[in-house]
Structures are given as structure tokens and as C-alpha cells.
Design a protein around this nucleic acid. Structure first.
Length: 429
RNA sequence: GGAGAGAUGGCCGAGUGGUCGAAGGCGCUUGCCUGCUAAGCAAGUGUGGGUUUUUCCCACCGUGGGUUCAAAUCCCACUCUCUCCGCCA
């Protein structure tokens, strides 16, 4: 893969001011575009020089071949020296070239995706914009418990033994809780495959370093990842990683798009730098279950597909009758690979607030460029595809939302109706 | 883990040092033919990059090195796939 394809270098050359302006809207975004342009210029200079040197060497080689064919050893001898000389010079130039390429690649790999023009400009999460709400938070006629109290008291969630086994930010689930987790997974997969047309996938949970780089999780977020030192494999932080790299290096047919995939996997995150955040309960875990939606689309359809993907995720909460709101993430809070993101937040009585339960993003061609995923257009030319991803939903947080929103005064938890078929028709746990 | 075989264009597959960016076939595109479909005939058909941009040039035959004036082809290392043996959920 040509290094310069990592970002659209031709666009940067021709429209650098706009790209720089858009990137600056992000939080802590160093202005690397000028550096990129400078290296690109040097790279082109060397490339041009190298190309003409190679052209000369190639023509010498052809002449040598002619002399040899006509058994003219002396004629060959005459130009051999020049060939040798050129060959040495070329090697030196190639060294310069690969050094520059390496520097450019290092730069490009840590430049995030360009935000969509219409994303609200803001410095951090306080400037995210609420788009819509669904459902009314329930009015309790008793004091509702937080899920960690409720779960511990009823023997459904066990934080002490989890920390004995693995440390902080792990939970052991028993009986109805474990069963409901499983039910939620099945319910979500069934909904997305049967009603929304997604193809169910069971991907590997361990992926190579290359896959992590291709999906934009590395090199920037190494300290966020769990890895296996002996094999340099990484535990996936989300199924987005295997699903979005699934068609790496492939050329897809336009008529096969959009491709829609759904996968349930556990997700593994070190949560470095989030000390003191959501320490209680099972909101922020090192391991959690998630049903993930990923779409591959043509560039002209990706923003409208973001709307439909978000609605597919929202529908899970509607079926579960859990109140939620949808917010648009402002530029300062936007994730590394995303050009536009909607978060879905479910109502949690213990937080007396809405809490993120899904995040849906248009990644545009950012991962496609890294993983070299293209499609053949009707005019037979190639272009990078766009990828989108979204949680549909984070299962652990959905369980938490059910615990807190469906609790009764006696500590029992009502099972949402759509889950009952998956729980041998239990009405409460 | 041991032994062996292999990795070439969208696919199959030929190619062991010099007009090979790559034969042949399939597929695809266009034209002819045709009541429709199929078949047939003809032509075209990899990707990326540079440039003085209807031109010329360069790179790419798993990845990275090496030998050579010249590498798909020879040498080394690595990765992956397949077959057999062992082990095993």
C-alpha cells in the first residue's frame, strides 16, 4: 500500500487550508498537515529523480541484453561500468526515499479522521448537542436502588469475588443476571438479523497488530489495549475491529454494497486514564459484552446510512421500553477514526441522568484507506469504501439499565416482555 | 511440535536470469450478429505513483533483505495456506 494513500494526499495538496481548519476543530490536534506537505514535496522530488535514474539503468540493461544476444562481449563490457555505478547511486537514493516514507507514515498514522463539516464545533463533551428523546423516565414511588446495591443484595452481581479473581472493574453474574445477559445478546442479534438485514458474524477475539493499525486503534492507543506479548496479538476492544477489517485488501462489487454485519463479542479495554470514573458497579469494565453493527457503503451513501444504523440501535431500546436520548458528538469530543458520531444514552436512575449505551460513527474512508478496501464503480474505476460502526447495544450497560429501570420495591427485577421468550418466560428475576 | 508442498492479475493457471506487467483460459466491457435468451465473431480489459497530463517514465508476481548491468525467475529470513504425523477443546 502506497504510504501517501493513508490520507487523501491529493486532496490535502489542493485543499490544505480547509483540511487543516477541520482538523483543528478537534481537541489537542497538533498541526501536522504542514509537515506532511513538506515531506510529500521532498518525496516527490526524490521519486522523480529516482525514476529517471531507474529509467537509465533499465535502458542500459536492455542494451547489455542486446550485446549479449549478438555475442558482443566487448560492447557489453563498455557500458557495464556505468550500470554498476548507477546501481549504487540508486541504492543510496532508495535509502533516502524509504527514510522519508517511514517518517511520513509515522505522521499519517497518528492524524485522526477529518470531521464532517456539519459536526457542531465544541471543545469537549459539555458541548455535545442533544438531538431527540424517546420515552419518559419512570417516576418511582419508592427510592430506587443503584444496580450495584440491587445486584449485590439479591446475589445477582458479585463485585467482591470478581476482584478476587481478576482485580477491579470485573463482575461475576449469577442466575437471572447471567441468563438476562445471554437473553439480551440473543434478542439483539435476532432483531438485527431478521428485521434490519444484518449478517450475523462470529469473528476472532484476538487480532494481529496489523488489524489494529488498519482499524485505527494503533499506534495511538496501545496503552488502552490488552495484548499477548508472545504472539503480538491483541484482545479486541470492540467487534468493530475484526468486522471493519474483514474485507481488508479486497475489491468489492458496487452492487454488493451496502454490506451489513452484526456480531456479538466480549470487548476488552484497559481503561487506562479513567481512574476514578464510574468506579462503582458494572458501567465501566475491563471486559464487557457488546453486539456491534458494522456497515460497508459507497461514499455518497455513508451519511444517510449513519442515520439508519443509529435507528437500528435505537430500536433495541424501544423494544425494551427504556427511555433514551440521542446526542451528536461535537468536534472536541469526536473519536479518533470518526468523522461524525451519534451517541445513544439510556436513562439510569442511579446517575439521575442519561448514560452512553451506544456510539454510532461514520468512519468515511479512514479505515478503508488503512486496510486498502475499495469497490469497483459502474464506470469501472476504483474508490475507497466507507465504513460505519455502532453498538447495537452495549449489553452490560443494557442489563444495568433494565435492573435500575425495571426494579420493584421488593428488590425483584421485572423482565421486559420482549426478553421473556429468551428466559423461559420468566416474568421477574 | 515434526515432515513435506505451495503463495503470480477479479478468478483459474503458465512462466527457473534479459522485449514478462507477465502466455492461455474464465469472467467483465464494447461492437457485430440475433424475434428474445443462449451461442458465435471482433476488439478491449491489473494497481499505484511521478511528469512537460490525450505523452512519456517508474514501481509492484506473499513480506523483508541479498546477489547481478539486469530478478516473478537465483540466495537468505519471515508470514500465511494446504497435506501427513503427533498433541488436543
Amino acid at each position: 500500500m502506497e504510504v501517501r494513500a493513508l490520507l487523501d494526499i491529493k486532496l490535502i495538496r489542493s485543499d490544505s487550508d480547509r483540511i487543516k481548519d477541520l482538523l483543528k476543530r478537534r481537541k489537542k490536534m497538533p498541526d501536522n498537515i504542514d509537515k506532511v506537505l513538506k515531506i510529500d514535496e521532498g518525496l516527490r522530488e526524490i521519486t522523480t529523480k529516482l525514476n529517471s535514474m531507474r529509467a537509465e539503468r533499465n535502458s542500459i540493461s536492455k542494451e547489455v541484453a542486446k550485446f549479449k544476444a549478438s555475442k558482443d562481449e566487448k560492447g557489453a563490457e563498455k557500458i557495464l561500468a556505468r550500470g554498476k555505478e548507477l546501481s549504487t547511486e540508486i541504492k543510496i537514493k532508495e535509502g533516502e526515499l524509504s527514510k522519508l516514507q517511514k517518517r511520513l507514515k509515522e505522521l499519517l498514522l497518528i492524524i485522526p479522521n477529518v470531521p464532517f463539516e456539519k459536526v457542531p464545533i465544541g471543545k469537549d463533551e459539555t458541548e455535545n448537542v442533544e438531538l431527540r428523546r424517546w420515552g419518559e423516565p419512570r417516576k418511582f414511588n419508592f427510592k430506587p436502588k443503584a444496580h450495584w446495591d440491587l445486584g449485590s443484595k439479591r446475589g445477582l452481581l458479585d463485585f467482591e469475588r470478581a476482584s478476587k479473581l481478576s482485580g477491579s472493574r470485573f463482575t461475576v453474574l449469577y442466575r437471572g443476571a447471567a441468563q438476562m445477559e445471554r437473553a439480551l445478546i440473543s434478542f439483539m442479534l435476532d432483531l438485527h438479523t431478521s428485521k434490519h438485514g444484518y449478517t450475523e458474524v462470529m469473528p476472532p477475539h484476538l487480532v494481529s497488530r496489523e488489524t489494529m493499525i488498519n482499524t485505527g486503534k494503533l499506534p495511538k492507543f496501545e496503552e488502552e489495549s490488552y495484548s499477548t506479548t508472545l504472539d503480538d496479538l491483541f484482545l479486541i476492544p470492540t467487534a468493530e475491529v475484526p468486522l471493519s477489517a474483514l474485507h481488508g485488501g479486497e475489491i468489492l462489487e458496487e452492487k454488493s454494497l451496502p454490506l451489513k454485519y452484526v456480531a456479538y463479542t466480549p470487548c476488552y479495554r484497559r481503561e487506562a486514564g479513567s481512574y476514578g470514573k464510574d468506579v462503582k458497579g458494572m458501567i465501566r469494565q475491563h471486559q464487557f459484552d457488546k453486539v456491534e453493527l458494522v456497515m460497508y457503503t459507497t461514499p455518497n451513501k455513508s451519511y444517510e446510512n449513519l442515520e439508519s444504523l443509529t435507528h437500528d440501535a435505537e430500536e433495541v431500546l424501544q423494544y425494551l421500553k427504556l427511555p433514551y436520548r440521542v446526542i451528536e458528538i461535537c468536534t472536541g469530543d469526536l473519536g479518533f477514526v470518526a468523522s461524525r458520531t451519534y451517541d445513544i444514552e439510556a436513562w439510569l436512575p442511579s446517575y439521575d441522568d442519561y448514560k452512553e449505551i451506544s456510539s454510532c460513527s461514520n468512519v468515511t474512508d479512514y479505515q478503508a484507506r488503512r486496510a486498502n478496501m475499495r469497490y469497483r464503480k459502474s464506470d469501472n474505476t476504483l474508490d475507497f469504501i466507507h465504513t460505519l460502526n455502532g453498538s447495537g447495544l452495549a449489553v452490560g450497560r443494557t442489563l444495568v439499565a433494565i435492573f435500575e429501570n425495571y426494579q420493584k420495591e421488593n428488590g425483584m427485577i421485572e423482565v421486559p416482555e420482549v426478553l421473556r421468550p429468551y428466559m423461559r418466560n420468566k416474568e421477574e428475576i
